[in-house]
Design a protein around this nucleic acid. Structure first.
Lengths: 165, 165
DNA sequence: GCAAGATTGATGCAGGTGCATCGAATGGGG
DNA sequence: CCCCATTCGATGCACCTGCATCAATCTTGC
């Protein structure tokens, strides 16, 4: 074992790391300059707004966003502090709770999508033909599905929004 | 302005974010489980070991690694604390200094490459043919070069090592 | 019905990161 | 020669993250 990776694979690895971090940086900077909170907030608000009645168990949110439990817990704290969501107790399981998005939360999510989608277009869309974007997605999918465990969702509804991380 | 990105571009963006973070996580975990420090340390040690006499100005390291100045400063602190590098004053510019890799540093870099290259093979190399790896690199390059400013190095010597971020 | 174990969510602590700013030293223009 | 803008590197502060662990509750097997 311990076979060496080919130079091609290594080059792809380097690209993946560098390009992702640069593109993400650019997008986050654009959002920040427009006065918006970090992307993680957007993702959470989006998941909540998509949920049946605008509410989710923290544990669901955690699974959607692929972030650790404590991270979810504190993210919710911040959303609640800012009045973007509220906690509600769960009657059927007293350990748990529900997190519900507020009107302010829904509104922020929509406003962020304006800046966010513009950034995606600026840093990704405008650099790649649609056909190339598909090729890129396919190649990336081959890496992603199975490194951890489960596979990525097929490709979300992308009309008024889109998750990032 | 504010043209919307195509669904293809958006899907590629999502993949890029999710796959990168998952693959990086896997690699970092493997390194950690093998008892090694984070990848950033490897990158710094590699840059130092490649430098003409095993030493660089912090500002050079910063440019190579594309990380902020304060981050470089503190990374060097940690390397020095662990005896992997040492600071040396710069006679010709008394503001500056040189950072020199130690024997222990060179040795750690080599040992890390064993685990690191195995992880690259496991999470990237084994998932992609060389031809696909090249395609992926090309597509990523189109995103990366120009989002920030300068372009990536053509593709480093990959015999005994390779930078990551 | 109950004890053992699993699940949900919060939190103390150590450490890492971004931001702003600082002091020292350099270099360029008048 | 001197002043001022610039560069180099460090650091205080706030915040964020990962890790370990906790208390509360639920579930399972007996």
């Amino acid at each position: 074992m311990k076979r060496k990776p080919s130079t091609e694979a290594t080059a792809a690895w380097i690209r993946l790391m560098r390009v992702q971090s640069r593109v993400l940086d650019c997008v986050e900077q654009d959002l920040k300059k427009a006065g918006f909170p970090p992307l993680a907030w957007y993702d959470a608000l989006l998941e909540l707004s998509r949920a049946p009645s605008g509410e989710l168990r923290p544990v669901e949110l955690e699974r959607q966003m692929l972030i650790p439990q404590y991270s979810t817990s504190r993210l919710i704290d911040r959303l609640v502090d800012e009045g973007l969501a509220s906690r509600r107790e769960c009657k059927i399981d007293k350990r748990g709770q529900f997190v519900e998005i507020t009107e302010a939360g829904r509104e922020l999510q929509k406003r962020m999508w304006g800046a966010y989608s513009a950034a995606i277009e600026k840093y990704v869309g405008s650099k790649l033909s649609d056909a190339d974007a598909v090729k890129l997605s396919d190649l990336l999918d081959r890496l992603g599905c199975s490194c951890g465990e489960m596979k990525l969702p097929p490709v979300v509804n992308v009309n008024e929004s889109s998750p990032s991380r």
